[in-house]
């Protein structure tokens, strides 16, 4: 069983245009999880998103684990039906071992983000 650790994000829902124009903290991991939604590591200032109706909330319900690229890919090839992105960096989300997971691919390593309600099941399936 692998250890997944709680990660702190800010979740932003805003118009797609506002998301496009938003100023994200430099160097932070920013995952565009939908046209109108971003998951950004750390804290995001409400003023950074140019949409007065934006919903900006701390998001503490993801656990994550970084793994080396090779073993991450090996696991994914056996655990999901969808096509892995070819470019790097890249973001993808979908069922991994039957669990809704977000995956961030860098050249050397891969981040798995798992909703806390599924962490125990995911860790068991990722042994």
């Amino acid at each position: 069983m692998r250890a997944l650790e709680r990660m702190l994000f800010t979740r932003v829902v805003a118009t797609p245009a506002a998301i496009d124009r938003a100023v994200w903290p430099t160097g932070a991991l920013v995952l565009r999880i939908a046209q109108d939604e971003v998951l950004a590591a750390g804290t995001v200032d409400l003023g950074a998103v140019p949409d007065q109706h934006a919903i900006v909330e701390p998001e503490t319900a993801f656990c994550g684990a970084w793994v080396d690229h090779k073993s991450g890919i090996q696991f994914l090839e056996h655990a999901c039906d969808w096509e892995l992105p070819a470019e790097r960096p890249a973001f993808a989300q979908g069922a991994v071992a039957g669990i809704p997971v977000k995956v961030w691919f860098e050249a050397e390593r891969i981040l798995f983000l798992v909703p806390v309600p599924f962490v125990i099941d995911f860790a068991e399936r990722w042994s």
């Binding site: 979740r11 829902v13 934006a54 919903i55 909330e57 319900a61």
Partner: peptide, 9 residues
């Protein structure tokens, strides 16, 4: 509208 499902959050 903006919609955020926070059920699991």
């Amino acid at each position: 509208v903006r919609i955020m499902n926070q059920t699991m959050s």
